[in-house]
Design a protein around this nucleic acid. Structure first.
Lengths: 96, 96
DNA sequence: GTAAAGTAGTTTATTTTATAAACCAAATTT
DNA sequence: AAATTTGGTTTATAAAATAAACTACTTTAC
């Protein structure tokens, strides 16, 4: 009945990050920080986990003299997100 | 942008339990166990948390000589579930 | 030119959760 | 009457989320 929810995506912050990336294709660390109101440390940790899982790609560049971290979603990440969405529908549409 | 997800419901097992209770009105411990495939211990702990939060009501009765735990959802629980569903839509319908 | 404050993060430590394993009390089966 | 089953609870452990502290460099103000 209740299929397991991908634990990597069943986390408020990681789900928010992936949700953002699914729609914008590429974004910066600072943008994620703005949109999620999470702390930088928390975001840093969660981005690493998503990258390790192959769900996102992280590119470290520079904007002028400052470091700039760019993130984008991978095919695997899109697939995982779509699966997660399908699965959680089972939980939030009871009876269906 | 991303509203906080109620941490009490953003748990695979508690969400499954509440999802069940929303549709069935009253159910037994054993039925929850069947439907979720979770261990009894895990269910016991999560039911307590949901009860403490006032999301469910737990009634301990007997079926013949055996103990029988019946659970039902409260108004507060229904409200919390509906809020959770609305909130997670923001995460899983990107762009919308 | 150097001290203070800001940018852009990372690392480490702490708290909280989720989960499983072990346990309990009574009933039933062999 | 010993072993197993029912219906759970309690305790212990593993994993997660989060915050606090830190790094490295840049800019601004004195």
């Amino acid at each position: 009945m209740f299929k397991d929810l991908d634990p990597l995506l069943h986390s408020q912050l990681r789900l928010a990050i992936v949700s953002l990336l699914v729609s914008v294709e590429e974004t910066e660390f600072s943008f994620i920080k703005e949109q999620t109101n999470a702390t930088a440390g928390n975001i840093s940790v969660q981005l690493d986990k998503l990258q390790e899982a192959g769900y996102i790609k992280i590119e470290k560049t520079f904007k002028g003299k400052y470091p700039l971290t760019k993130c984008s979603i991978t095919k695997k990440g899109i697939k995982a997100f779509e699966d997660y969405v399908k699965t959680i529908q089972q939980y939030i549409q009871p009876g269906k």
